[in-house]
Amino acid sequence: MEVRTIKVFTTVDNINLHTQVVDMSMTYGQQFGPTYLDGADVTKIKPHNSHEGKTFYVLPNDDTLRVEAFEYYHTTDPSFLGRYMSALNHTKKWKYPQVNGLTSIKWADNNCYLATALLTLQQIELKFNPPALQDAYYRARAGEAANFCALILAYCNKTVGELGDVRETMSYLFQHANLDSCKRVLNVVCKTCGQQQTTLKGVEAVMYMGTLSYEQFKKGVQIPCTCGKQATKYLVQQESPFVMMSAPPAQYELKHGTFTCASEYTGNYQCGHYKHITSKETLYCIDGALLTKSSEYKGPITDVFYKENSYTTTIK
């Protein structure tokens, strides 16, 4: 009895394709271990004539594949690729409408935090270190965002349907971005203890939790000093293409032309909904596939993004 075979390709990165001759009487799992086709788990399936010449994702289970996976995804987590594939199996079914010149995501599976993050990423200057993220990001900007969303979920250790947080998501993504040249110098002034300067680099240099107003941050924000008295913390120097200011959701007025974009969060910790506000020729609110415009805006804002380049204080 002759062994019926077909020729397929296996890959971990969709760049390096490895030619395989597979036995049609055995499952993919018996031949390769966990195997995925377009995100779908085909591990328990036997090869079919229609699979001839198709590319299958496999887990990096030998040295060659491990090197290829690390170079593309910059992670050695053995569960990463499987999590990416199972997320992709959902995100490829989502709709990605162009809204006001940006790629958004039609609401499904509690994905409003991903839509808000995706919209924000198209408006701030950011370059990702893992080629996987950078490639998928370019495709997302062009309207094909399924891979990018699935990668975000995998890097953030999230599953489809789980509630997510924009600030946490951005923080994970910033860790995989090139923020080497970003720098922030802060000064804390206390009447009792004097003053202390701190220099922050990388992710810490672009994120701040405690106030939404970048102007206020430049002037000074009140913080408790270690001595128990009130101290003032203010920005001395900022070198970065953008800054992200966050605070627990509270009524906040966004003035046209003073910011790049913002995240609105309605609801409580267990259950809520994100919308995205962007400042173009007027203010726009993007909620999944829905767009509304207004000249002014007041609502429960939790993150505001500002364009920056270089700032030095005039406070002496």
Rank of each mutant, 00 (worst) to 15 (best):
E2P: 10
E2W: 08
V3R: 14
R4L: 12
R4T: 12
R4C: 13
R4D: 12
T5K: 11
T5F: 11
T5A: 13
V8W: 06
V8A: 11
V8F: 06
F9V: 09
F9L: 11
T11F: 04
T11C: 04
V12R: 08
V12F: 06
V12I: 11
V12G: 08
N16P: 06
L17I: 00
L17V: 09
L17A: 12
L17G: 05
H18W: 06
H18M: 06
T19W: 11
T19Q: 02
Q20D: 07
Q20N: 09
Q20C: 11
V21S: 13
D23T: 10
S25E: 14
M26P: 06
T27N: 15
G29R: 07
Q30W: 08
Q31I: 12
Q31G: 06
F32T: 13
P34G: 09
P34I: 13
L37Y: 14
D38G: 09
G39K: 06
G39F: 10
D41R: 07
V42L: 12
I45M: 13
P47A: 12
H48N: 13
N49W: 08
S50I: 13
E52I: 12
E52F: 11
G53Y: 12
T55D: 04
T55C: 11
F56M: 10
F56S: 04
F56P: 04
L59G: 08
P60G: 06
N61C: 15
D62W: 07
D62M: 06
T64V: 13
L65G: 07
R66C: 13
V67L: 15
E68S: 08
A69E: 07
F70K: 10
Y72D: 06
Y72I: 03
Y73I: 03
T75K: 09
T75I: 10
T76R: 10
D77N: 08
P78H: 11
S79K: 10
F80E: 04
F80W: 04
L81I: 15
G82D: 15
G82E: 15
G82K: 12
R83W: 04
R83N: 10
Y84Q: 02
Y84F: 10
Y84T: 03
Y84I: 06
M85L: 12
S86P: 06
A87L: 07
L88Y: 14
L88P: 05
N89G: 12
H90T: 11
K92L: 10
K92P: 06
W94H: 04
K95H: 15
Y96F: 13
Y96E: 01
V99Y: 14
G101C: 03
L102K: 05
L102Y: 08
L102Q: 04
L102V: 07
T103P: 03
T103Y: 11
T103Q: 05
K106D: 11
K106A: 15
A108V: 08
A108W: 03
D109V: 05
N110V: 04
Y113K: 01
Y113C: 05
L114C: 03
L114S: 03
T116D: 06
T116C: 13
T116H: 06
L118Y: 02
L118M: 08
L119R: 01
L119V: 05
T120C: 14
T120P: 05
L121P: 03
Q122S: 03
Q122R: 04
Q123E: 10
Q123I: 04
E125N: 13
L126G: 04
K127C: 09
K127T: 13
F128C: 02
F128P: 06
N129W: 08
P130I: 04
P131W: 08
A132Y: 01
A132K: 08
Q134S: 11
D135L: 08
A136R: 02
A136S: 10
Y137D: 05
R139H: 12
A140T: 09
A140H: 05
A140I: 13
R141T: 11
A142V: 13
A142M: 13
G143A: 04
G143T: 02
N147D: 14
F148V: 04
C149V: 13
C149L: 08
A150M: 02
A150N: 03
A150E: 00
A150W: 00
L151R: 03
I152S: 03
I152M: 10
L153V: 07
L153H: 03
L153R: 00
A154F: 02
Y155F: 00
Y155Q: 04
C156A: 07
N157T: 00
K158A: 06
K158S: 02
T159C: 14
T159P: 06
T159L: 09
V160N: 05
V160T: 02
G161K: 05
G161C: 04
E162V: 05
E162L: 01
E162Q: 10
L163D: 01
G164M: 01
G164P: 01
D165P: 03
V166S: 06
R167Q: 00
R167I: 02
E168M: 10
E168T: 13
S171M: 14
Q175W: 04
H176A: 04
A177V: 08
N178T: 05
N178A: 09
L179G: 04
L179V: 07
D180P: 00
C182S: 03
K183G: 04
R184E: 03
L186M: 14
N187G: 09
V188F: 07
V189Q: 08
C190F: 03
K191E: 15
G194Y: 02
Q195N: 12
Q195A: 13
Q195V: 15
Q197F: 09
T199G: 05
T199P: 04
K201H: 14
G202W: 00
V203K: 12
A205D: 00
V206Y: 01
Y208F: 13
Y208V: 11
Y208M: 09
G210R: 03
T211V: 09
T211Q: 06
T211C: 11
T211H: 07
T211F: 03
L212C: 09
Y214W: 09
E215W: 06
E215H: 06
E215F: 02
Q216L: 07
Q216T: 08
F217L: 15
F217V: 13
K218G: 00
K219S: 12
K219D: 08
G220N: 01
G220D: 04
Q222C: 11
I223V: 15
P224A: 12
C225R: 00
C225I: 02
T226I: 12
T226P: 14
G228Q: 00
G228N: 03
Q230I: 15
A231Q: 03
Y234I: 11
Y234M: 09
L235E: 02
V236K: 04
V236W: 08
V236N: 03
E239D: 12
S240L: 01
S240I: 01
S240P: 01
S240A: 05
V243Y: 03
M244R: 00
M245H: 00
M245S: 01
S246C: 08
S246P: 00
A247L: 03
P249W: 01
P249R: 01
A250W: 05
Q251R: 10
Y252N: 05
Y252K: 04
L254I: 02
L254V: 01
K255H: 11
K255S: 08
H256Q: 14
H256M: 13
H256W: 15
G257L: 05
T258K: 10
T258G: 09
F259W: 01
T260A: 12
T260R: 05
C261K: 03
C261T: 02
A262K: 00
S263D: 02
E264Y: 03
T266R: 08
T266W: 06
G267S: 13
Y269N: 15
Q270I: 07
C271R: 15
G272H: 01
G272F: 00
H273D: 00
Y274D: 00
Y274S: 01
T278A: 10
T278Y: 15
T278I: 11
S279P: 04
T282P: 00
T282A: 13
T282E: 14
L283H: 00
C285A: 13
I286T: 07
I286M: 03
D287W: 01
G288D: 04
L290E: 15
L290D: 15
L291A: 13
T292R: 10
K293S: 13
S295N: 07
S295K: 15
E296R: 09
Y297F: 13
Y297I: 06
Y297L: 02
Y297M: 06
K298M: 12
G299P: 02
I301H: 00
T302L: 00
F305G: 00
F305D: 07
Y306K: 01
K307V: 15
E308D: 08
E308A: 07
E308Y: 07
S310M: 15
T312H: 10
T312L: 14
T312G: 09
T313V: 11
I315G: 12
I315L: 15
I315W: 15
I315C: 12
I315P: 15
